[in-house]
Design a protein around this nucleic acid. Structure first.
Length: 856
DNA sequence: GCGATTGA
DNA sequence: TCAATCGC
């Protein structure tokens, strides 16, 4: 196997050397160029001589480093960096990018530490050449690491390897920091030991090897030297630490491979401006004279560059890949992050404090940002980092195109292939550019609108909700838990007694055996694998007039209690963050086929709503502050209203415009009675039909829910459609249109390709029909709530009101605020939700407030 | 009807 | 993987 050789360039030191070594030189426009010219000459010479397999250029990023913290005098007294140098440094970085060499600057890390880290990681994997002007770096020398330094001017270099180093200094490179700390370093403001110069220091290290050993034998030294050494002992060790390079960063050179391509066009432009002739020649570039532009294009060399064929201004676009650590969301923090530009320059950040985040935000100013997972990134830096319309989120874009794929297995594989994320953040960042190119062209105007106006702004809102969390009263929850456990034990005992046999009540299989084989109860329903024992079956059994019905009754209780305990109480207790005393759910906005949100860890969107136990459970959800309250705002019948709007059915619309009880109204029309005379039973049936409609329920499904015959169900459905003909038309048309288009379409343009719907078992036509009917309605409703959330968030920020959105349950939003703000927050909630969109029917919102979630 | 979660 | 059950 051929060993790779990598050239690591200490850009800052080398350019600085060139700046002072060369006389003042200027471009035609007056721009100083000596550092650029000197630097390029050195770099190109070495590349030419050594022919490395890979080149990486490192620069110091601004910001204090650990050395400043450890030693306040560090680099003190150094004159400020001359402006003429700074401007050249910027251009050097630019040229490096266009040459296709990765440029690495890491906030708060000096270039030589970064190089040291790469050298450490490279150990045993390949050899390295370090090009620097800084003698400190000689400590990096190893069998497979050489260091090259310019001596006198910029044209001659000295190459140090293990052998030449020992020849010159007489001790191994690893002792170099000990040696340097003795003689000091003027440049870094390290004074060294008075009376010890290079000669004596070298002799001492040769003899004793290290500072530690030197102090062991301090009595063997001449009196004078020994006493100044004793005087400065602490400082000396501190200096050595400053001089030692920190190689603890994790930078793998592999991550930068194939980083960028050479951009000849851009290089020619720069060199032309600088008036350079020789450099472009050495690079094989032809610099045209300023006024020969036209002739050249006429000559038509046919040389295409990436930038000319695309209208994108790639320099304004930066890709951001990131990694976080800690539990999501409450303690999730950015651990590493890479910014990449399209030509392959990188900027690495391992943030530690707020300043680092600010620096990152600064870096991103004025840029378009490509990212994967904007919500997660926002959470990791704990604030909205930039203008929302500047963000392009690949995760969202992919989801908008393939809502059913983005959470499935093949979808994941597809993304992995595109992002190559297993190869490191740098590759991931770069591949975002590919993804952007591929996906953007597939997205139509409407999908773009959804991304920029809904899903990306929503990311920020969701991130805030996740981090805020909801407080739980653990004492109360414990009491509920114990009460449940006690009751459950009683129920279990009763079942054992009544059944005369002990089985695992959590196992449907064993329960089935108990009920049907052991007790001989009649089989009501079967599943694919055996007896069905679901609620409807148990309810029917419990109505039977025989003693074994008691077992079914008790089983129903058992089901409810175990669901409560293992499904809600225990998971909630486990989910409480011990530090905050809250639960922090994660809202996924790129996981459902219809565009709804989902909630997990814990799922707070499926808390039981009715019943004593549900209330007891919800009493545990309390406001974060003493005077706090919850305000819940629910859309009334949002999906039916959307159906009314989409279908344009006159009667349905009218019913909503007049603010009627929609289920009673439906019953009146179906069964041909006066609205006032609708019995609760008829209303219940109408309600079932309305829901069934929305879910695309079949006559069979309706029959089983209403516990009526299939024929009867069909009659009712027929009567519904003759009462609301336009709804019937919509249902007829929606599937055909979706099939023709290949995807369903919501009011806001949200799509769902039918052939990607995997959730449907067997992909039967009937199932697809249901999807085609239901998805546009559910998607539209989901988007209305999302818009309301964004508007609410904006309004709360704008009015500077101390209230927080804490929960979304599809058609309901729950806020937390101080009791004294109840009225104003209620007003804003209602207004944000009701005017989120203008449909042909009004949107109505019901409000409720209370001290716990049980009250709202 | 869908999504999430649990337990066997 | 499936059945069951909570929400919408």
């Amino acid at each position: 196997m051929k060993e790779e050789r990598i050239l690591l360039v200490d850009g800052h030191a080398l350019a600085f050397r060139a700046f002072y070594a060369l006389p003042e030189l200027n471009a035609p426009d007056g721009m100083p160029t000596n550092a650029i010219l000197g630097f390029l000459n050195m770099l190109l010479k070495i590349i030419n001589d050594e022919n490395p397999d890979q080149v990486i250029v490192f620069f110091d990023a601004k910001g204090e480093t650990f050395r400043h913290e450890a030693y306040k005098e560090y680099k003190e007294g150094r004159p400020p960096t001359p402006e003429e140098f700074k401007s050249q440094l910027l251009l050097i970085k630019e040229i490096m990018k266009y040459l296709g060499y990765p440029v690495i600057e890491i906030e708060g890390v000096e270039a030589d530490d970064a190089i040291a880290s790469v050298v450490r990681i490279l150990e045993g994997k390949g050899s390295a050449l370090v090009l620097t002007a800084d003698k400190d770096m000689l400590q990096l020398i190893r069998a497979d690491v050489k260091v090259m330094r310019p001596i006198k001017g910029v044209s001659t270099f000295k190459v140090y390897d293990e052998k030449t180093f020992e020849e010159e200094f007489g001790f191994p490179p690893s002792s170099f920091p000990d040696y340097l700390s003795l003689i000091g370093d003027k440049v870094d403001n390290i004074p060294g030991i008075p009376g010890i110069g290079s000669k004596r220091a070298s002799a001492l290290i040769q003899q004793y090897g290290s500072l530690e050993n030197l102090y062991e034998h301090i009595n063997e030294l001449p009196q004078k030297i020994a006493s100044s050494l004793k005087d400065k002992k602490d400082e000396l060790f501190q200096w050595r630490e400053l001089i030692r390079l920190r190689d603890t960063l994790c930078i793998s050179p592999d991550e930068f491979k194939g980083g960028g391509e050479r951009n000849n066009e851009a290089l020619i432009g720069i060199f032309q401006r600088l008036g350079f002739k020789q450099i472009p020649e050495r690079l094989g570039l032809r610099v045209k004279d300023v006024d020969s532009r036209e002739t050249r294009s006429k000559a038509g060399e046919g040389e295409k560059t990436p930038n000319t064929e695309e209208s994108q201004d790639w320099s304004k676009i930066v890709a951001l890949a990131f990694e976080g650590r800690g539990r999501y969301p409450q303690s999730f923090a950015l651990s590493r992050c890479v910014l990449a530009e399209r030509e392959g320059s990188f900027y690495l950040l391992e943030p530690k404090g707020d300043d680092d985040y600010d620096a990152l935000v600064e870096k991103l100013r004025e840029k378009e940002i490509l990212i994967w997972g904007f919500k997660e990134f926002t959470t990791s830096i704990k604030k909205a980092p930039f203008e929302k319309d500047k963000v392009w989120d690949g995760k969202i874009a992919y989801y908008l195109l393939h809502p059913d794929k983005s959470s499935s297995k093949e979808g994941l594989a597809e993304i992995k292939k595109m992002l190559k994320s297993e190869e490191g953040l740098d590759k991931e960042a770069l591949s975002l550019f590919d993804l952007y190119g591929k996906i953007s062209s597939e997205m139509d105007e409407a999908l773009h609108g959804l991304m920029y106006r809904i899903d990306i702004p929503l990311s920020v809102v969701l991130s805030r909700m996740e981090r805020k969390g909801i407080r739980l009263d653990l004492d109360h929850l414990w009491k509920v838990k114990q009460e449940l456990e006690r009751t459950l034990d009683d129920v279990k005992a009763s079942i054992d007694m009544a059944a005369g046999y002990k089985v695992n009540l959590n196992s449907p299989k064993q329960v089935g055996w108990l009920l049907f084989d052991h007790l001989g109860l009649p089989v009501i329903k079967k599943t694919k694998t055996g007896y069905s024992t679901d609620v409807t079956v148990l309810e029917e059994l419990s109505r039977l007039d025989r003693p074994e019905a008691l077992v079914a009754k008790l089983l129903l209780d058992h089901r409810e209690l175990t669901k409560m305990l293992t499904g809600f109480v225990q998971p909630l207790i486990d989910a409480i963050d011990p530090k905050t005393g809250k639960v922090h759910t994660t809202f996924e906005h790129t996981s459902t086929g219809t565009g709804r949100l989902s909630s997990r860890d814990p799922n707070l969107q499926n808390l039981p709503a009715y019943g004593d136990w549900a209330m007891k459970l919800k009493e545990a959800f309390v406001p974060d502050r003493r005077d706090g309250i919850f305000i819940a705002a629910d859309y009334s019948q949002i999906e039916l209203r959307v159906l009314a709007h989409i279908s344009g059915d006159k009667k349905l619309c009218e019913a909503f415009e007049r603010g009627r009880d929609i289920h009673a109204e439906t019953a009146a029309w179906i069964f041909g009675v006066d609205t006032e005379k609708v019995s609760p039973e008829l209303r219940r049936m109408a309600k079932m039909i309305n829901f069934g409609l929305l879910y695309g329920m079949t006559p069979y499904g309706l029959a089983s829910r209403l516990n009526i015959g299939r024929e009867e169900a069909k009659t009712i459905i027929d009567r519904y459609f003759s009462a609301f003909p336009k709804v019937g038309d919509y249902i007829e048309k929606s599937y055909e249109e979706a099939r023709k288009r290949g995807y369903t379409l919501s009011l806001f343009g949200r799509r769902r390709p039918l052939n990607e719907v995997t959730t449907v078992v067997g992909n039967s036509t009937a199932a697809l029909k249901r999807v085609a009917i239901n998805t546009p309605i559910q998607s539209t409703a989901a988007d209305i709530t999302k818009i309301a959330m964004i508007r609410l968030d904006e309004a709360l920020q704008r009015e500077n009101i101390d209230a927080a959105l804490i929960l979304q349950i599809h058609d309901s939003l729950i806020c937390e605020c101080s009791a004294k703000d109840e009225e104003v927050v209620s007003g804003i909630l209602k207004e944000s939700m009701e005017s989120a969109v203008e449909l042909s029917v009004p949107l109505e919102v019901n409000l409720k407030s209370g001290r716990t979630l049980a009250e709202v």
